[in-house]
Design a protein around this nucleic acid. Structure first.
Lengths: 107, 107
DNA sequence: TAAATATTTCCAATAATATGGAAATATGAA
DNA sequence: TTCATATTTCCATATTATTGGAAATATTTA
């Protein structure tokens, strides 16, 4: 993940509806969710949610898969972890300050 | 850290100059850096950097301390870790998917 | 094929953000 | 005090993001 990727991912998450949608997909895990349920859960119009899900996809943070007349959106855990790692990279010049209680998803 | 705090922090980091500045402060660790050196290192005009550092402060991601005619900016590691944790919270409904190789700073 | 359901695309108005030169402010030194 | 250095604030312009109703598209079922 280069700087541009990271800026795009951060910008995608820096919006309440998108942050909520992404977190819901993180909780959902590998099973994912379809936009109808997500729209209901977040109380956001379908057109608005669709716009935001596309933004998250453009940032590489989620993926889309068709399943019949439904779509399934899933969090892209590898990219999320890449983003987290980028922020702490070479923290304190690599001194012994890394906290192994940190939680990143291994999905 | 509530949702609004997180959105503000993400928005603050979703800008190349600010992301670079923040990462430089993360690497610098508790010693921090002054804006003159930072401006030179990032090759950005002082006025522009000042604007961006203020944004990072408003988001609670860095702090400012005066030391004579210099200022010292430091990364606020607790808030950085809070941000990272917010994104992975209740990942996969809490199933065994947490990767303890993740790196968060304990500074 | 036609109807029903699920989801996206289009659109234009509104709002927020990034830029950097010049002037202002704050501190330390002569 | 007066000068030199460090840093911020002011400002106007240009760019970009967000919203949701209506129409369009895709898929399944009858």
């Amino acid at each position: 993940m280069n700087e541009q990727d990271v800026v795009r991912a951060l910008a995608a998450l820096a919006q309440p509806h998108r942050l909520q949608a992404f977190r819901a997909l993180v909780v959902a895990g590998p099973a994912g969710m379809n936009p109808g349920i997500l729209a209901e859960q977040l109380a956001v119009p379908a057109a608005t949610l669709s716009f935001h899900l596309k933004e998250l996809m453009n940032a590489g943070l989620i993926t889309q898969q068709r399943a019949g007349r439904h779509l399934i959106y899933r969090a892209e855990f590898a990219r999320m972890n890449g983003l987290l790692g980028y922020l702490t990279d070479n923290c304190c010049q690599g001194e012994a300050c890394l906290d192994t209680t940190a939680t990143a998803c291994a999905c």
